[in-house]
Amino acid sequence: MAELLKVSSLSKNFGGLAAVSGINMSINEGELIGLIGPNGAGKTTLFNLLTGVYTPSEGLIELETTQGKKQIGGLAPYKITELGLARTFQNIRLFKSMSVLDNVKTAMQKNVGYGVPSALLRTAKFYNAERWVEEKAEEYLKDVGLYKKRFEAADNLPYGEQRRLEIARALATEPKILFLDEPAAGMNPQETAELTDLIDHLRKKYNLTVILIEHDMSLVMNVCERIYVLNYGKLIASGSPEEIQNNEFVISAYLGEEI
């Protein structure tokens, strides 16, 4: 598999605090990668660096594009999204008063292909593009099992379905890499099992590379091919699920034991 994303000596400092320090990662096209670690280990900070929310203090984030490798560290989030990186958030961020369908459509405006004059004059180009957007948005909602609720307000969805809506909205940006920040948070075992199947389905259908932060170890060990482990902002281990389960440094980090 070809390398899609490379992280080299990546660090982020807040004042005198190093939130992440010297991170090196290599993500191959089509992989499903887990990012785990105790609370406060720096996982979400790393996601924020990779998706443009934070600017790195040091290091490189290189994305393979059609024009070759591109250094994306420090780019604005919308520019990183245009390059094919999308994410969900640990705390759900939906337009709660808008419909489920409109939440997904908002993520597709970069692809509509018409300008202000066409929108104001309601040209054929405008109507054709809007029809395409609606059909594609409905397809994403079918993928996540929310098509029948497409006209409901997002705020009326149960918690687990709001998580699914966030994933559908991320898909609507047509990503190459999908970052999922604790997608199973707050879910019961049945919902988590359904989410596991959903991630696998979406990955195959859309040829996605998936990187997820998750505290549910059963989900991580069942779906991830490789796992990176952070502790106190530093990478302490990487490998297959079996290798991580038996790694003494990982066991120490989770159990708080000295080795």
Rank of each mutant, 00 (worst) to 15 (best):
M1E: 15
K6G: 04
S11K: 10
S11R: 08
G15Q: 13
A18P: 00
A18V: 02
G22D: 15
G22S: 13
I23K: 05
I27T: 11
N28Y: 14
N28I: 00
G30W: 08
I36H: 06
G37Q: 07
P38V: 03
P38S: 09
N39W: 05
A41C: 04
G42N: 10
N48F: 04
G52L: 03
Y54V: 01
Y54G: 02
T55D: 08
P56F: 12
S57N: 08
E58Y: 03
G59Y: 04
E64R: 13
G74R: 04
Y78T: 01
T81V: 14
E82M: 01
L83Y: 04
L85A: 08
A86C: 09
N91Q: 12
I92D: 06
F95D: 10
K96T: 14
S97I: 04
S99C: 09
V100I: 13
D102R: 10
D102K: 14
D102S: 10
T106S: 12
A107E: 09
A107P: 08
Q109N: 14
N111L: 13
N111K: 15
N111F: 15
V112R: 14
V112N: 06
G113D: 12
Y114E: 08
Y114M: 04
Y114V: 10
P117K: 10
P117S: 12
R122N: 05
A124Q: 13
A124F: 00
Y127C: 00
N128W: 00
E130W: 06
R131W: 04
R131M: 00
V133S: 11
V133Y: 01
E135I: 00
E138Q: 15
E138N: 13
Y147M: 00
K148W: 04
R150F: 05
E152T: 03
P158R: 09
P158I: 10
Y159W: 13
G160S: 14
E161A: 01
Q162P: 01
R164S: 11
I167L: 02
I167C: 03
A168G: 07
R169A: 15
A172T: 02
K176L: 12
I177D: 07
I177F: 04
D181C: 05
E182A: 05
P183I: 05
A185C: 08
M187L: 15
P189W: 05
T196M: 14
D197R: 03
D200C: 03
R203Y: 07
K205N: 11
I211K: 01
I213G: 02
E214I: 02
L219N: 08
N222M: 00
R226L: 09
I227M: 12
L230K: 06
Y232T: 14
G233L: 06
A237G: 10
S240G: 05
E242W: 00
V250Y: 04
A253K: 04
A253N: 05
Y254C: 03
G256R: 02
I259T: 09
